[in-house]
């Protein structure tokens, strides 16, 4: 009880200052601060051709064709079990395709493609900053590992927690450490597998802003799997609706950023995408 009392307010208290600073910056047209990250050559483009994946007799993906331009923010939505997470795992190289191909614009290094999961997956026996250092991959033994981990932590606003154990952090803070770990190697493709699914509503919104901000600063290609359509339309340039292992709809979200949560345009788009999803589901139930 005390734990939850203690953790929750500190999390909420953290959010407004950054949001305010950001609003002030856009209002006064101040130049963006120089990113603490020296970003790479930006994102990688991604081309998927007639991709299929089966687990035994169960064909999860039934021919996906998709091109994602470099630096685009793509959200993938669908009912549970539609194959969206499998698609993400294939892109991240965690599964091998049954047939078809996935190719990136250039040959990626191992550090160029990173995944963030629904669970933070932090090592409980490593400090926050050592956890972030894990994200450096093969470069973690280099002498600048500590400095880079600290930069990444500063990016997600958790620099002062670097010597803490993960067990003392709140759920939102743990997820931000996981984000720092994914960012520390300057990835060019970042895949998110429902990274905010386990967070409470307020923390969720602040995390969405954080994701959008780091994506704009670092210009990686972002692929977000989510079951939350409002989150998808708030963050993404483009929303893919997956049904029965195929891309059923490909919706461009052409709304200027920063987007206002709950604005009429977003709500209309959200409604139409939800409409697609629900009608497809009802068909499935009738048939």
């Amino acid at each position: 009880m005390q734990q939850s009392l203690r953790v929750f307010p500190s999390d909420v208290a953290f959010v407004p200052p950054t949001a305010l600073v950001e609003q002030a910056r856009t209002a006064r047209r101040l130049p963006e601060p120089v990113p603490t990250f020296t970003s790479n050559a930006g994102g990688l483009s991604l081309t998927i051709q007639s991709l299929r994946k089966s687990f035994g007799d169960n064909e999860v993906l039934r021919g996906i064709d998709l091109h994602i331009p470099a630096g685009q923010f793509v959200a993938i939505v669908g009912r549970s079990g539609c194959g969206k997470s499998t698609l993400l795992r294939l892109i991240a190289g965690l599964e091998t395709p049954t047939s078809g191909s996935i190719s990136f614009g250039e040959d990626p290094r191992a550090e160029d493609v990173r995944v963030m999961f629904q669970e933070p997956r932090l090592l409980p026996w490593a400090t926050v900053s050592s956890n972030v250092e894990v994200g450096l991959g093969r470069q973690r033994s280099r002498s600048d590992a500590k400095v880079r981990a600290e930069q990444a932590l500063a990016e997600v606003g958790l620099k002062e927690k670097r010597d803490q154990w993960p067990s003392v952090l709140s759920g939102g803070q743990k997820q931000r450490v996981a984000l720092a770990r994914a960012l520390v190697s300057h990835p060019r493709v970042l895949a998110f597998d429902e990274p905010l699914g386990a967070l409470d509503a307020l923390t969720r919104i602040s995390m969405q802003r954080l994701l959008e901000r780091v994506w704009r600063e670092q210009t990686f290609t972002a692929i977000l799997v989510t079951h939350d359509v409002s989150e998808a339309v708030a963050l993404a340039d483009r929303v893919l609706v997956i049904e029965d292992g195929r891309i059923a709809h490909d919706v461009l979200i052409d709304i200027a950023r920063p987007r206002q949560h709950g604005s009429a345009d977003l709500a209309a788009l959200e409604g139409s995408i939800l409409g697609h999803l629900l009608s497809a589901g009802d068909d499935g139930m009738d048939g």
Binding site: E111, R114, L123
Partner: peptide
């Protein structure tokens, strides 16, 4: 899940043992 995470982040078998 931690072991999968370690593999994604390029840990060798030795590192996987030592760190996870």
């Amino acid at each position: 899940q931690l072991i999968e995470m370690g593999r994604i982040y390029g840990m060798s078998n030795g590192e996987l043992f030592r760190r996870i």
